[in-house]
Design a protein around this nucleic acid. Sequence first.
DNA 1: ACTTGATACTTTGCGCTTCTACACATCGGC
DNA 2: GCCGATGTGTAGAAGCGCAAAGTATCAAGT
Lengths: 114, 114
Amino acid sequence: MPPKSDLPQGTLDVLILKIVALGPVHGYAIAQRLQQISRDVVQVPQGSLYPALHRLENRGLLTADWKESETGREAKFYSLTSKGRKHLETETEDWRRLAEAVSLILGLAEGGVR
Amino acid sequence: MPPKSDLPQGTLDVLILKIVALGPVHGYAIAQRLQQISRDVVQVPQGSLYPALHRLENRGLLTADWKESETGREAKFYSLTSKGRKHLETETEDWRRLAEAVSLILGLAEGGVR
DNA sequence: ACTTGATACTTTGCGCTTCTACACATCGGC
DNA sequence: GCCGATGTGTAGAAGCGCAAAGTATCAAGT
């Protein structure tokens, strides 16, 4: 029973931005880190990852440069722009508020609303 | 600055199922309750609500009957099927796992992964 | 030498969901 | 008579994640 779970729309962006915020990384490493940190709960297919990165780049939230990766190969390293950093903050805040609200609702007992 | 926030895809279903699980309600009341409990964080537009209800009904997770509402008007009251109840459980569990994972990632400091 | 697996990026097309906007109907209050 | 709240519904548009396939390099196994 693999604990795989699909990501709700809009969630991937925040996660990517957060990982990139920790320092420049290339796409492949982003997926690895997400999977690693979340203990395999978050698994990002490449078909989700790279389009997302391009979206974020087009929105001006990320910038990319080709550099040599740790393994000696060429890879695109992404960095956060100031706009991206600001966006990350508000998105993080949005997630926190939403998660709290959803937990509140899902935590309801039969008692109902009072 | 109203703390409005759009719902990530897939989240609406769980919330609806949860509200219905507390007892038979009609659609309009579901939206009200969600908004009320979440303190306006969750606001469900009618164009999202009713398609979602129909979806859930078609999937066999909900059943609907026309009854008289509290105000004396006809309304569709939705109830959870056994399948719906089971579905709600797994979905709730999925949400918990995901929320925990996302919080874990968003809570990362500059330190990185260790 | 061949093949497998890991690394690393790209693109296309599908399917699903949500949102905006509109339409229709009844009821109570002003 | 009109407007707001109640209550259900549809149509169109837009967005996003995923599967799938393709490209390419490199290390390690057989």
